[in-house]
Simulated scan of single mutants.
Amino acid sequence: MINSTPQAVTIAGSDSGGGAGIQADLKTFQARNVFGMNIVVALTAQNTKGVQDAYYVPTEFIDAQFDSLADDFKIGACKTGMLASEAHVKCVVENLKRVDFGPYILDPVMIAKGGHKLLEDGAIDSIKSELVPLATVITPNIPEAEVLTGLTIQSGEDMVEAANYLKALGAENVIIKGGHRDDSYAEDFVSLKDEEFWMRGTRIDTNRTHGTGDTFAACIASELAKGNDLKTSIITAKSFIQSAIEEGIEVGHGHGPVNHWAEVKNSIEIIEK
């Protein structure tokens, strides 16, 4: 049957080092048995030590990529990562309104592991006002959530407040990732349309975390593209990234990448509210 294989697309930046961005997303799609496609918004000269340079793809070519995929494939889910500038955010917004790529996961990528900015300051308001309301689920880490909400996030209560803030902006479902908190667990707060819960994994002492956020969001997209419900998809993604970090790959001289082919273990705890 034509187009019977689950399909997902990443709309993001390319990482020449292969650990994050579009490359991490495509590896995740493949690992989760989903056919992956990409729409390139930006190119980066990047390795495990950081981002050395970036080139923004002309918005007209982004339009052409959307048209090409929409004309041929039956895409079951999509995700965004690095969107670079306000003009690029607006371009993606208009295209997501125009095509049907299924459930949309918004990973509001702002800063690379090495500290390089991947989103211009002028784009933040457009993400809040135009992109967030389109998202099926938004997956900020704590620094990203602080930028989007203006809140200081240090505690679990702060994470709940941030999720409520993003819901007030129009986000239907929110995941505040807690990996940046200084405690013995990596806890994420999940606020869905009809329920809330926490996902807890053991904190792993490693510098092989490059591509963590991209991989987590791409896994959610993969599971949704296969027809799984949102809660199941999110829990699967937490287990997937926990295992991928545990078995991180030893390459490069900086923040090494997670392992997309790690054996997925049920090593997380779900705490219902």
Rank of each mutant, 00 (worst) to 15 (best):
K27P: 08
D25R: 01
K177V: 13
K177P: 07
D100F: 01
T48N: 09
I235H: 00
I153C: 12
Y56P: 07
A12F: 07
V258C: 04
F197E: 02
V92A: 08
L192R: 09
V40A: 03
G115P: 14
A218N: 14
L106K: 10
A45T: 14
I235G: 01
T215D: 05
G248V: 12
I142M: 02
L118F: 00
Y185K: 07
F29V: 01
I220W: 07
I11K: 12
H180R: 05
F101T: 01
T5S: 12
E120P: 06
Y165M: 12
T48Y: 12
A163D: 00
A84P: 00
V89Y: 09
Y55I: 09
V40G: 01
I175C: 11
G115S: 13
K193Q: 14
T149R: 03
C78H: 02
E196N: 13
A217D: 04
E146T: 11
D229W: 03
S267A: 10
K113W: 00
N141W: 14
E146A: 10
T28N: 00
A42E: 06
I270S: 08
G36I: 01
V160R: 12
I124T: 12
E60T: 12
G213T: 02
A31N: 14
I2N: 04
I138P: 09
E223Y: 02
I176Y: 01
V147R: 10
E195Y: 15
T5A: 11
L83M: 07
G179Q: 05
P58M: 08
Q23C: 06
F240C: 08
G178T: 11
I138D: 06
Y185G: 09
V99F: 15
G211Q: 09
P257G: 04
V160G: 04
K238C: 13
A123R: 01
I124S: 10
V160N: 04
A70T: 01
